[in-house]
C-alpha cells in the first residue's frame, strides 16, 4: 500500500447538529481528519457516534434539518460546506462516491441494473453503445459473472452480495478519486463479506482510490485499513496507523472496543470486558470527556474538561487525560495485553 502524505480531503473542526422536536441533537462535535491519496482510512465506533453524518456532509446529502455549525471540509482547495446542491452534483459520483450498507437504498427496484449503470455513465457524454460497453466492463470489473445476461435483470434477481457489487460498479462509473464506504458489508454473510472486501481492496489498488471505510467491526478494520480513526459521541478520540491502534492503543474507549467481543482464543470461562451503560444522549452532550461515565479509569477532570489530542507518535494521537504528564499511570487491561501478546507471538512464529 503506497500512501504518500498528500491530503486529498481535509475535515476541520466539523460541528453538525440536527433540529428535532425534542431539541438540538449534537451529532458531530469537532471532527478533524485528513484523507491521503491512495490510503484507506477506517472510521470505527458504535452506532450513533456520528460516522455516517460526518461522511454525508462530505458528499452533501445531509437531511434538511441538519446544520453545519462550524468547521470546513476542504477538497481541492474548495470548502464543501459552502457548496450548493448544484455544485455538489458536479463532484458527487465523478469525484467522490459513496456506497451504503443497504444496496437497495441506492438501486431503483424497477429498472434493469444495466440501465442503472449506464445512467451513472451518462453524465460523461458518451454514446449509448459506448455506455453499454463500459457498463459491461464495469460489471466484469466488480466480478459479476455472465454480465451480458445480468445486464438485463432487475435488482431483486440478485443476491445481497451481487447487489452490493452492482452498487460498487455504479459508484465507480465516473472514475471518482474518493470512495466512501458506509458499512458496505454489515448485512452480508462472512464469506460474501470477504469477497466484497477483497473487491474493494483490489479496485482501490488498480485505481489508486482514496477510501474512507466506515464500520463497527474491528475485524473488518484490521483487514482493510491503513489508518484508523476511532469515534465516540461525535468526536474522534484516537487515530493512528492500523498497527498503532491495534497493538498500542491509548484511549480507554479503544481498549473497550478491542476487548468487548470474543475472538477465537477467548475462553468461555472469561467474562467479556463490557463497557457499562449506553452511549450518551446527544441531545444533551455531557460536559468534559463524553466517555467518562462509562470509563472505569475516569478521573475528576474527565467530568469537567474535554481532553486535548495528545501526541503518541507522528502518526498517532489520542484524546485522553491519561496521556497528561501528571496523570496516574494506568495500564491497559490484562485481557487486552494478553491478546496483543498472543498476536505478536503468532507473528514471530
Amino acid at each position: 500500500m503506497t500512501t504518500n502524505n498528500e491530503a486529498i480531503l481535509q475535515v476541520n473542526d466539523l460541528h453538525i447538529t440536527f433540529n428535532t422536536f425534542s431539541g438540538k441533537v449534537h451529532a458531530v462535535r469537532g471532527v478533524q481528519f485528513d484523507l491521503r491519496k491512495g490510503e484507506t482510512l477506517a472510521i470505527v465506533g458504535e452506532s450513533g457516534s456520528g460516522k455516517s453524518v460526518t461522511n454525508k456532509a462530505i458528499v452533501g446529502i445531509l437531511s434538511k434539518n441538519a446544520n453545519i455549525e462550524r468547521g470546513n471540509i476542504i477538497y481541492r482547495g474548495a470548502d464543501l460546506t459552502q457548496y450548493s446542491e448544484r455544485q455538489f452534483t458536479q463532484i458527487r459520483g465523478s469525484k467522490i462516491s459513496m456506497i451504503f450498507q443497504d444496496p437497495m437504498s441506492s438501486l431503483n427496484p424497477i429498472m434493469k441494473v444495466g440501465k442503472q449503470i449506464m445512467e451513472a455513465l451518462r453524465v460523461r457524454n458518451i454514446s449509448k453503445a459506448e455506455a453499454r460497453q463500459r457498463a459491461i466492463e464495469l460489471m466484469i470489473a466488480v466480478g459479476i459473472p455472465d454480465p451480458e445476461k445480468r445486464f438485463e435483470q432487475y435488482p431483486f434477481q440478485f443476491s445481497g452480495g451481487m447487489r452490493q457489487r452492482i452498487v460498487i460498479a455504479i459508484a465507480l462509473a465516473c472514475d471518482p478519486e474518493v470512495l466512501i464506504c458506509d458499512e458496505p458489508t454489515t448485512a452480508l454473510d462472512v464469506t460474501i463479506q470477504a469477497q466484497i472486501l477483497d473487491l474493494i481492496k483490489q479496485i482501490q489498488k488498480e485505481r489508486d482510490l482514496s477510501v474512507i471505510f466506515i464500520t463497527h467491526d474491528l475485524g473488518v478494520v484490521a483487514n482493510v485499513a491503513d489508518r484508523v480513526a476511532v469515534m465516540y459521541a461525535g468526536k474522534i478520540v484516537e487515530y493512528g496507523t492500523v498497527d498503532e491502534i491495534f497493538y498500542n492503543p491509548k484511549h480507554p474507549y479503544t481498549w473497550s472496543l478491542l476487548v468487548s467481543m470474543p475472538d477465537l482464543d477467548t475462553s468461555s470461562s472469561d467474562e467479556l470486558l463490557v463497557i457499562p451503560g449506553t452511549p450518551p444522549n446527544m441531545l444533551y452532550p455531557p460536559k468534559g470527556d463524553a466517555f467518562a461515565p462509562r470509563n472505569r479509569y475516569a478521573m475528576r477532570i474527565d467530568y469537567e474538561e474535554d481532553p486535548p489530542m495528545y501526541r503518541v507518535s507522528d502518526t498517532h494521537y489520542a484524546a485522553t487525560w491519561l496521556l497528561h504528564p501528571n496523570a496516574p499511570k494506568v495500564e491497559i487491561p490484562d485481557v487486552l495485553k494478553k491478546r496483543i501478546a498472543q498476536q505478536t507471538e503468532r507473528l514471530v512464529r
Partner: peptide, 23 residues
C-alpha cells in the same frame, strides 16, 4: 474451513497474511 478462513480477526498482522480457502 472456508467459513473459518473468511472471518476477519481484529489483528492486522493476521489479516495481512490470511489465506482464504474457497469451498
Amino acid at each position: 474451513k472456508s467459513l473459518l478462513s473468511a472471518i476477519p480477526l481484529p489483528d492486522p498482522h493476521h489479516e495481512r497474511n490470511r489465506k482464504r480457502i474457497y469451498y
